[in-house]
Amino acid sequence: MKRMSFGQATVDATRLAMREDERVIVLGEDISWGGNFGQFRGLLEEFGPDRIIDMPISEALIMSAAVGAAMTGLRPVASMSFLEFTLGAMDEIVNQAAKMRYMSGGQVSVPLVLRASDGILRSSAAQHSGSLEALFTHVAGLKVVAPSNPADAKGLLRSAMDDDDPVVYLENKSITAKRGPVPEGDHRVPLGSASVVREGTDVTLLTYSAMTLRGTDAAATLADEHGISAELIDLRSLWPLDFETVASSITRTGRAVIAHEAWLTGGYGAELSARISEELFADLRAPVVRVGAARAPIPFSPPLESAVVPGTDAIVEAAIRAAS
């Protein structure tokens, strides 16, 4: 396996998909320059400006043009740069992309991938640090994935591009440059398959995206310093969700901690916690504990940022609470 960054892994997936299928195009701001995080680097040179299309800073247009293209025979990838920019295109995402298949009575599918950088990178401040996945998992008709490492970045993007429905692909800024082993060639990770990163017996840690890295550190600390054996599950795909893997772990551990960078209130963890309580109540030996950002816009000041956003310590504390 080659080592490459998360961003390079997405380039690899896109390149392979574009070579295989002429219908794939990429629409986005600045993508012919490689994108903000190099996640489109080199694609223009191979595929040209008819397929790697620099768009005006018109988010509503980027999304709706992707919808129009997807409904008429293409398979567009729409790059929305920072996740907050999708908020200028929520009508197009929620009212058009997500609902078109259903509203038409199944006449059409909308095979598009919405790529956006979420999460926190070095004081990117309130309008460039969001983790808004719950806005998308809430919407019937969308699928949502949030990989945590380069191999999954490639495999999930490939599956998202294969998929016939709109997929929101969240690539966390803080891990875009992180490197790891990536399978060469046609590597795919199916949507709706979670990954057991570390096996354990005392408590189940449920994470995705960048929080999986903190969860990995937390699991090590829990074992080394607190004698707690944590099982870490990287959900990878939020909808569809691999609840079977989640359930089989919690059935054994009886305890669950859900950690995400997003705001705690109404976050994805709230939905997941509710489902665990409803379906696995008899197996639980303690209340489900959630870890998420405090209810404040993400601050610019580094110490304030750390105060709002949960780190490894927060996951460790939550696991101790759940396991006690």
Partner: peptide, 24 residues
């Protein structure tokens, strides 16, 4: 490609369909 309950919902969809026609 559909009536649309959102005023202005068709602008970008039409542009995307035009882009698609061009590409194909």
């Amino acid at each position: 490609l559909g009536a649309n309950g959102i005023v202005g919902g068709g602008f970008g969809i039409a542009a995307g369909a035009g882009l698609s026609a061009r590409r194909r």
